[in-house]
Amino acid sequence: MAHTETRQGSAEPNAAGSQRRSFWGALLGNSSYDAVTRVLFKTQRRQFIILASFPLFWVLFAHLGPILQMFWISFLDSYPPTAGVEPQLTFANWMTFFEARIFMMPFFRTLGFALTLTLTTLLITYPVAYFLAKHVRRGNQLMFLLLLLIPFWVGEIVRTYAIMILLGNTGAVNLILQWLGLTDRPIPFMYTSFSLSLGIIYLTSLYMLLPLYSSLEKIPRNYLEAAADLGAGPWRRFFRVTLPLSREGIASGCTLVFLISTGYYATPVLLGGPSTTVFAETIAGFFHVAGDEWPVGAAFSSIMLITTLTLTGIFLKLMGRTGKGLME
């Protein structure tokens, strides 16, 4: 069995080009190539080290590096450094946050917003995911899912603009409301927490829906049938079987939506107003002006990163999961 599979697997590239085979054959027969690989791959251990070196370098240099550098900058009194002046270590940047209400307010507003939106998104998308996973025939599920995925591929800015057109004073919603005679002057939906919430739910709902769908889809039908045979009504079946078994999806979906919605910058700028300033705008403010403010911005970013990751860590722990497999 294994043998036939192997043949099929290697037959394809062979057929693809007989010229390439001679290249690889020549490479293997080349004496200098042979000498080099003999040294490099002499032992399993050496081979492992060579394979491991670049990935380890990359994750430390490019994934962890920027975060550590940001933490480091947040303790300096000036950055980018001016020539001849040695930057001093200081806690002042971190203390700035606790001293002013104009910084604290957006921070807590962002967290509150993100939590509310996560919960709302969960409530909206759960029935949709349930319908997809349990009521649509398996052959049609892909089509129904694709219908939801297409708008999802469109970028943040374009979709934010679409919401602006929908909700503007001369937008579609106001046109319909006036036509129905429900209001005689346009309702100012834009630049409020309403428009911002609607926009962010519009952007993030699929991050909730997909994990929910994949966890609901995995629940075997006979579990529910067994519960029904034992006399459980529809609501009881839902709360005792379906909901606990979709916990995995709820946990990943909520984590993703929470982390993503705290990170939006353009959407709050375009859809929000002065009363809805979020922390991303506060942080960005420190980078628009001359370089001196970078350390404060770095400190604020660190505060936000630590807070959001701690909150999601606690949440995942409560849901009985570790962070592993979050993205799956």
Partner: peptide, 29 residues
């Protein structure tokens, strides 16, 4: 290998950092 989970977590790190913080940290970097 020992520490595989840590390397895996570090690999996934950029995907879970909120967008604005990712952008700012990369700007500084």
């Amino acid at each position: 290998f020992p520490g595989k989970l840590i390397v895996f977590a570090l690999t996934c790190l950029p995907a879970v950092i909120p967008g604005i913080i990712s952008a700012i940290s990369l700007r500084i970097y």
